[in-house]
Simulated scan of single mutants.
Amino acid sequence: MSELLPALPTGYRARPASAEDLGAVHRLVAACEHELYGRPQTDAGGVAADFARPGLVPASDTLLVHDPDGRLAAHAWVNRRSKVDVHPGHRGRGLGAALLDWAEARARQADGGQIVQTVPDGDTAAVALLRSRGYQPMVTEWLLEFGLAEGAAPAVPEPPEGITVRPFRPGGTAAERDARAAHRLVQDAFDEWQPRRMDYEEWARHTVERPAFAPAMSVLAFAGDQLVGAAIALDLPDTGEGYLEQVAVRRDHRNRGIARLLLRHAFRTFQQRGRRSGTLWTHSNTGALDLYLRVGMTVRHSSTVHRKGLGAARPSV
């Protein structure tokens, strides 16, 4: 790893991340989000799930940059995708460019044919940096929200004929059965656009094993005893929001109003729990934006997934 360490401004030091650093990385990400959006969006469980990606080796695939006083100034990881965050108080010093160089070098070393990064459209400096390095836009992502007025519960439509809904069961063997059925449903539904299927363990780290997972706020739809739809919710009290990590409907039950039913059930539960809004991310490959707009959601902000093709790894000397 040492030959890949980037050149940094005087006084800054780089090292790989460890499990003990996750809290500091989360605080850094939250500071970046607060600067850009006026509020944090990522919970600690989301950061932990990123650092537990299959195949990611912290010693070679992560990097933390500390300032002369030992405070975390920036971080990056690379594992098929890449993420770079620089604390607002340390921008304009070349840290982002240095970590971008490191991420590309590490991706080449790992024989990656490309590198992918998602950057908020409002972060114009980061977008300009990526474009100057030859990254091209690939996919647009949108964060959508549904405002929840106090005391005004969202209307929930009647279920389609033969469809029943209930929340996730809260624990034990029954909860695991719900989770494994939801995993199969989501992976089958997302096969149309996601680049690879997640095994259960990876999927669970992003959903049902996160500390913020809210089984009582998550909704399952059944046709008889067959799971045909799921809306998996996270409770993010620090943001005052309920968040839908995933929404999926089995292909042979689409266009029946099941997605709208799941969304409205989740939003009503969010409102009953005192949340100010319900949010979710979607992107242009899913074709779901119009659905979310029709149920009354609006776009809060957008991001773009950028991709760059990489040449063969340089021989070591």
Rank of each mutant, 00 (worst) to 15 (best):
G89A: 12
G151R: 07
A49P: 11
S60M: 12
V47Q: 06
S132G: 15
L148P: 00
P40F: 00
L143T: 13
A103K: 10
L100Q: 04
G113Y: 05
S82F: 03
L36W: 04
P159V: 08
T124Q: 13
D111W: 01
A107R: 01
A49K: 09
G151A: 08
D121S: 10
G122K: 08
T118C: 09
Q114C: 13
D67S: 09
G112Q: 07
P68Q: 12
E33Y: 11
W77C: 02
Y37C: 08
A126N: 03
W142E: 04
E35K: 03
M138W: 15
Q117I: 03
P40S: 10
P68H: 12
L64E: 00
P40Y: 02
H75M: 09
G55N: 10
S82N: 01
D61K: 03
W77D: 02
V116L: 04
A107F: 00
D69E: 15
V156N: 08
V57G: 12
A126S: 14
T42Y: 04
V127R: 09
E33K: 07
T62R: 05
R131Q: 15
A44V: 08
R108T: 07
E104K: 06
E141T: 13
R91M: 07
L144I: 00
D85M: 14
R133L: 14
Q109V: 08
L64S: 01
A52V: 10
R81W: 15
A76E: 04
D61H: 14
P40E: 07
P58N: 06
E35V: 02
S132I: 09
L36D: 03
E158P: 11
P40H: 08
E104W: 01
P54V: 03
P54Y: 02
Q117Y: 02
D85N: 11
G92H: 06
P160T: 13
G70M: 05
V86W: 01
N79C: 12
L143M: 15
L56S: 06
D123K: 11
V119W: 07
R39H: 09
E33G: 06
L100E: 01
R80K: 03
K83E: 13
L64M: 05
V57E: 13
A103R: 04
G96I: 02
A97W: 03
L72C: 02
D121K: 10
R81L: 09
D85R: 07
M138H: 14
L99H: 02
A97N: 13
L95S: 02
S132K: 12
D123I: 14
T62W: 01
A73S: 09
H90D: 09
A74K: 06
A76K: 00
G147P: 06
T140D: 13
G94M: 05
S60D: 10
L63C: 11
T140F: 08
D67N: 05
A44N: 03
Y135D: 04
A76M: 01
L130T: 00
V47G: 05
Q136I: 11
P40L: 08
N79D: 15
T42Q: 01
L72Q: 01
L144D: 02
